[in-house]
Write a protein that binds this DNA or RNA. Sequence first.
DNA 1: TAGATTGTTAATCGATTAACAATC
DNA 2: TAGATTGTTAATCGATTAACAATC
Lengths: 214, 214
Amino acid sequence: MPAQGKVSLPVIKRLPKYYRYLSEMKQKGITKVSSSELARIMGTTASQVRQDFNCFGGFGQQGIGYEVNRLHTEIGSLLFKEDSLKTILIGTGRLGKAISSYLNNDTRGYRLLAAFDVQEDVIGTQLCGMTIQHIDQLKEFCKSHNPDVAVLCVPKLSAKELAPTLVELGIKGFWNFSHYDLAVEYPNIMVENVHLGDSLMSLSYRVNSLEHQQ
Amino acid sequence: MPAQGKVSLPVIKRLPKYYRYLSEMKQKGITKVSSSELARIMGTTASQVRQDFNCFGGFGQQGIGYEVNRLHTEIGSLLFKEDSLKTILIGTGRLGKAISSYLNNDTRGYRLLAAFDVQEDVIGTQLCGMTIQHIDQLKEFCKSHNPDVAVLCVPKLSAKELAPTLVELGIKGFWNFSHYDLAVEYPNIMVENVHLGDSLMSLSYRVNSLEHQQ
DNA sequence: TAGATTGTTAATCGATTAACAATC
DNA sequence: TAGATTGTTAATCGATTAACAATC
C-alpha cells in the first residue's frame, strides 16, 4: 500500500480515463494489454502509463503485460470504496435537475440523499425521488446524516455564503458548478470544479484563433 | 499582435478566470490593479500573472500597474470576437436541455442555431425557441448554415459515429459532453471536454483518500 | 528623485519521456 | 535461451517562480 497522498493531480485525473478504456476492453473480452497498446488507444505514451500505474505499486507482470480484469478492479477500487459517498445537492434549477438525474442514473460511488433550494415554489416538490427541502433545513439534515459531498448548483454569491457552513458541517468534497473559487479559500477541502462558462470561453478563444490562422 | 498559436494551453485556460475577476472588479468600481493584488485574489503568483499577460504583449504600465477596464476589454476581445460562433446542439436529453438553456441565457460568444436528436417523439417539439430536428437533417442544415461549433450531448457511440461527418461539414470546435475522445482522433480540431463522470471519479478518489489519512 | 511595479530573462520545479536492467 | 515487457532510474521538456533591469 503506497503513500497515496503523494500521487500528483495529473495522475489522479488520468485514472478515470484508464478505468473507462479498461471497462471497454473487459466488455470486448480482451484479457491482456501492454502499456504500449493502452497508450496507443488513449493517445499517450507507454512510459506514462507505466509511471502512472507504478504510483500505486504497479499492477503488471514483467515480460507479460497487464491483466485487463485485474487492472480494472485495482483502479476501480482506487476510485470507489465499498461505501458510496453520501451526497447532497444544493440548487435545483435546470442544471441541478440535470445533474441530480445524472448522479442517480449514470454514476457509481455516490448516493444522493437530499436536495435543497431557496425558491419557495419548488420546496416540497419531488426530484429524483427526493422531496426538495428549504435551505434552512440544511444544518439539521447534515447533523443527523453527515453527508460527505455537496454538489453546488447555485450562483456564485450563494456558494460563497454557504461554503463556511458546509465545511463546518463536515463536508469533505465539493462538486462545484458555481463560479465561486472554493479551492482558494478552503485549501484542505477537495474541490472538483466544473466551470461551464470558463470551458466555453477557452473553446471560443481557440476556435477564434484557428480562424485567424487560416 | 503576437503569435497566438504559441500560447500554451495552461495560459489559455486561465484567461476566463482573469476575465471573471476583472468583470467583478469593474462592477465594484475598481479602476487599477497590480499583478500582485490580482494574484492574491486569484490564488496564484504575481510572476504568473505578468507572464500570462505578456503572452499577448503585456497590458500594463511599468511602475503603475494594470488598468482594470483596459485589461478586461483586452482579455474579452481575446476570448470573444464580434461575430458569435454559430453553434448546434446534438442530443436533447436532460443534459442537452440544461446545456441549451445555459448557452442561451448565461453565455456570450455563442449563438445556438439548431438542435438535433434521434428520438422520434421529441422531433418537432420546441427547445429554447428552436424546433428539434431529426439528425438526418444535419447535413443539409450544415451545408446551408455553416455552423462553427457542435455541442455533443449524446452517448459515446453516437459521438463516434457523428464525428467524421461533423468534421467534414466544417465544424471547427466541439463542446464535448460524451465520453468519446475526439481529441485523440482529430488532432486539428478544437475540443473542450466536459467529462462529468471523470470529474466525479477523481473527486471520489480524493475524498476517499482523505478519509484514509485521518 | 525615490518608490512602485511592470516586462523579461534566468532559475527552479515538476511532469513527461527515454533508457535500461530486471524478469517473466 | 530469446523475446517481450515491466518497473525504475535518468534525461528532457515545459511550466512556474524568482530576480532584476527598465520605466513610469
